[in-house]
């Protein structure tokens, strides 16, 4: 194309671009990368910064201080709500993964035809409005709700059961229902990937069906189980809608405290410090949990 003996800068740039896969890749990737840096990474960094600042009246004092963290750590009510949040999320994770595992196992190993129909059926609720699904549980569990009115009109009880709504178990049920698809898909994928001849080999070496499950299938599906657990545990610790709708005073979780600090009390630095402490604690717990599970499964021989 160019016959000039000393290629210009534009030509060299062009040659580099033609030659470099990485340059072409990053050129294509840059819009999404920039978007996510601006809309995700930058706000998170600012959130961290805020947690080291101080609210004074309507403005923010940007002198760095750890006072907000001391405030968060020193307040018993935050400790209480944090541990209640962890307890609720742990229960939700346990229930959801426990129910999803056999379901995913059935689709992976039991379903021969129309597997994709099962998968679509199991994922549709995931895409439908979470708010409305939480709302339907409020309708079902309510004082005058579906269960109580149903039981009364069936003549089984005379007074509505009060323990159904506005407590932790209502939160657990609602969240377990809401996060079902998060658990099923990763577990299903890890089960589906297992080479069936491994099971035949184990049978050939004398393992019973249970032993095969415990020694082959379960350890190999562990990445999916752990993935599912993290994918449920972490987002539910920050859930706002469900505790508000069905939690009542004893079912409140930490997102409510954060929301109050941000939208009602308008103490953003304190809200940021609370959010960051909670996230850090959740992160540490997740790492400990995953490590412990991996060590435990390594004991299976």
């Amino acid at each position: 194309m160019t016959a000039s003996s000393a290629p210009g800068f534009a030509d060299r740039l062009r040659a580099f671009y033609l030659r470099s896969d990485a340059a072409k890749g990053y050129a294509l990737l840059s819009p999404v990368m920039i978007t996510m840096v601006v809309l995700l990474a930058a706000p998170l960094v600012m959130l961290i910064l805020y947690s080291f600042w101080t609210q004074s009246g309507l403005s923010v004092d940007t002198t760095l201080t750890t006072a907000r963290y001391q405030e968060v750590l020193g307040k018993q009510s935050y400790h209480d709500i944090f541990w209640r949040t962890i307890g609720t999320s742990s229960l939700v994770t346990l229930v959801t993964v426990g129910l999803a595992y056999p379901m995913a196992y059935y689709v992976a190993f039991g379903v021969k035809k129309y597997k994709f129909v099962w998968l679509i059926l199991l994922t549709i609720p995931f895409w439908t409005s979470y708010l409305l699904r939480a709302f339907s549980w409020k309708v079902i569990l309510g004082f005058n709700g579906v269960i109580n009115s149903g039981l009364i009109s069936a003549g089984l009880i005379t007074e509505p059961l009060e323990f159904l709504l506005y407590n932790q178990s209502a939160v657990v049920i609602t969240l377990a229902h809401a996060y079902a698809a998060f658990a099923i898909l990763p577990i299903y994928v890890s089960l589906e990937k297992i080479d069936r001849t491994l099971l035949e080999a184990a049978a050939d070496l004398g393992d019973s069906a249970w032993a095969r499950f415990w020694r082959i299938t379960f350890p190999l599906s562990l990445p999916g189980v752990l993935g599912a657990a993290v994918l449920i545990f972490v987002p539910t610790t920050g859930d706002y809608v469900t505790p508000q709708l069905v939690g009542g005073p004893t079912g409140q979780m930490i997102a409510y405290s954060i929301q109050v600090l941000f939208l009602k009390i308008n103490d953003w630095p304190l809200g940021a410090a609370l959010a960051m402490s909670a996230m850090a604690a959740v992160g540490i717990l997740v790492v400990l949990f995953v490590t412990a599970m991996q060590l435990a499964v390594r004991q299976i021989r």
Binding site: L39, A42, P43, M46, L231, T236, G238, G271, M279
Partner: peptide
């Protein structure tokens, strides 16, 4: 993919700050 792993409340307040 990070937004899938972060509680929405965090995303909400972070975006509000932005």
């Amino acid at each position: 993919m990070l937004p899938l792993f972060i509680p929405e409340i965090i995303l909400g307040i972070a975006l509000l700050i932005l």
